[in-house]
Simulated assay, not measured.
Amino acid sequence: MKFLLAIITGAMLFITNSVTAQNKTITATVVNATSDEGKISFALYDKENFRQIPLQASVSKIVEGKSVVVFENVEAGEYAVICYHDKNNNDKMDFQSNGMPLEDYGTSNNVMNFGPPNYRDAKFTITDKNVSLEIRF
């Protein structure tokens, strides 16, 4: 009976450690905010929900032009991060009447084209290690 209990306990610990080991963190850092006013809002997406409802979202204050967030418990896979500088703290990105952004924004991989961000340029992969991203506006 003790032998069976030891096997079951060992199996449960192995399964628990395997599940926990699969979830990683993504640390996203904006390194060049133009001011410490307002905040920076970050959103984590996968291909299916890109620029819609984020898988995770976080807001961070700006200190000396830098802002950092950590997305936790992220499963292995392909993702993209978008962030913007909410200078006036109104919880939305502001645009000019012609559609040009009034507030700075950036994406993972720092590819900035004319027009809105696209998943193909911003995507990165998480496998067996935590990921750190440096995002520039």
Rank of each mutant, 00 (worst) to 15 (best):
N88F: 00
M12L: 14
T16I: 15
M100C: 06
L4D: 01
A80C: 09
S58F: 05
I82M: 11
K47E: 04
C83P: 07
N118F: 00
T29H: 03
F137W: 14
I26L: 07
K39R: 12
E103W: 06
D46M: 07
N90D: 05
R136C: 01
S132I: 08
I15W: 12
T107N: 04
V70W: 00
N98T: 11
G115I: 07
E48V: 11
K66F: 04
K92T: 05
V131Q: 04
V19S: 07
A6D: 02
E37K: 15
I82H: 09
M100H: 10
N49I: 06
I53N: 06
I40K: 10
F42T: 11
Q22E: 14
S18L: 14
A122C: 08
K47C: 01
T27L: 02
F95H: 09
F124V: 03
V69W: 02
E48H: 10
A28P: 12
L102K: 15
R120A: 02
F137P: 14
I62T: 07
S67M: 00
M100Y: 10
G106T: 12
E37C: 00
K87N: 03
N90Y: 00
V81H: 04
V131W: 09
C83R: 00
M1T: 05
S132Y: 01
L5G: 04
N32P: 11
G65M: 14
N49S: 10
K123H: 05
T34S: 15
A43H: 14
L55Q: 02
I26R: 06
Q96Y: 13
F95E: 02
Y105N: 14
I135E: 14
A33L: 12
F124E: 08
N32V: 14
N17L: 15
E75S: 13
Q56I: 08
L133Y: 12
T20I: 15
I82C: 12
P116M: 04
F14W: 10
I15F: 15
V59C: 03
V59S: 09
S108A: 06
N73T: 05
V63N: 14
F124K: 07
T16M: 13
A11R: 12
E103Y: 11
I126Y: 08
H85M: 05
V68G: 07
N17Y: 15
N89G: 02
F95A: 03
K92A: 10
T125A: 06
L5K: 12
I15P: 08
D121G: 08
R136L: 08
L13G: 11
E78W: 01
V63W: 09
N113G: 12
P117M: 08
I82D: 15
D94R: 03
A76F: 03
R120E: 06
P54H: 12
D104Q: 13
I62H: 04
G38Y: 00
K24R: 15
A80V: 05
H85R: 13
I40N: 10
K61W: 03
K129V: 05
Y45H: 03
M1G: 10
P101V: 06
D86M: 01
T29A: 04
M12S: 14
A122M: 03
P116I: 10
S132H: 02
